[in-house]
Amino acid sequence: MNATLHPISQPITHPDDIPGTTIFGPAQAMRGYALNAMCYSFNNAANREAFRADEAAYCARFGLSDEQRDAVARRDVLGMIAAGGNIYYLAKLAGIFGLNVQDVGALQTGTSVDGFRQMLLDQGSAYRNTVEGEKVHG
């Protein structure tokens, strides 16, 4: 079989790629399989304990790539996503690190957790101001 028939070795790019966004498509699914499988295993409390006890050994057991092991060791969420991590599974790893979705948001956007929370709150305020403005001005 001609390997060129399977050109899925890079993330699928789209002429209208969405900034700051990775679509979890075939390339990511293949690249991230080991990392996501490890994260899926964390649905079991004993597996979470085993990871806590020896991170490197646990990552090795699931056959993580160097890139994936490095991103996990550095708590680098964007690095995990680049290495094929899917947020639905990475959320379980984030839980082990004691990170909630605002913490994870702050890590990915390079802001403080307070700054990230405020950014979310500001979107609510902006929306309500617009709605109020429409009520006043028709």
């Binding site: 900034p19 700051g20 966004t21 990775t22 947020i87 959320a91 994870v104 979310l120 979107q123």
Partner: peptide, 11 residues
């Protein structure tokens, strides 16, 4: 939740 655009909402 994911990526550099994390926190994006669109009323």
């Amino acid at each position: 939740l994911d990526g550099a655009r994390a926190g994006f909402m669109n009323p």
